[in-house]
Amino acid sequence: MNRTPRSLAVKRLMKEYRDLAKNPPEGIKAGPRSEDDLFLWDASISGPEGTPFEGGTLKAELKFPTDYPLSPPTMRFTCPMFHPNVYKNGYVCISILHAPGDDPHQYEDSSERWSPVQSVEKILLSVLSMIAEPNTESSANVDASVMWRDNREEYNRVTRKNLGLS
């Protein structure tokens, strides 16, 4: 019966890792960087087809708080990303990763935000769809947002260049 947040988090992360390893979703791989620290994960997303990211592999790291799943993890792309919803330092800005308490912009519906129902798999799937369909209403990278809206060609070019796909 002794439930510390940390033990809960470890249990849950193990479970999620096992589930992900057992039947991984298409184009997504994720797992702890090392067996010792379950709270730091590496993830790789293969660029979805029909987007400038097609063919590339996007590497990211996920940091889990000790009270996961009550608090959301943070996700940061380790590869250079030029995307309206990714900050320049690589952090992903997506509603599913926002804790329900801190709402900086007050425009996200609470059902879109983090809840323990979400999981790593769902985060990564959301990120996948975000990559394909950027949300320019809440842009983390204004340059990318503007470029995506006004100059799609240039945006594609920069993206592909970033990924080394030319």
């Binding site: 947040p5 009270d67 009550l70 608090s71 329900p100 308490g101 609470s110 059902s111 935000r113 809840s115 323990p116 129902v117």
Partner: peptide
Amino acid sequence: HEWLQRSNKKHCEL
């Protein structure tokens, strides 16, 4: 219980 305590809610968020 823990989640509701954290999220200050009385209802299901979904």
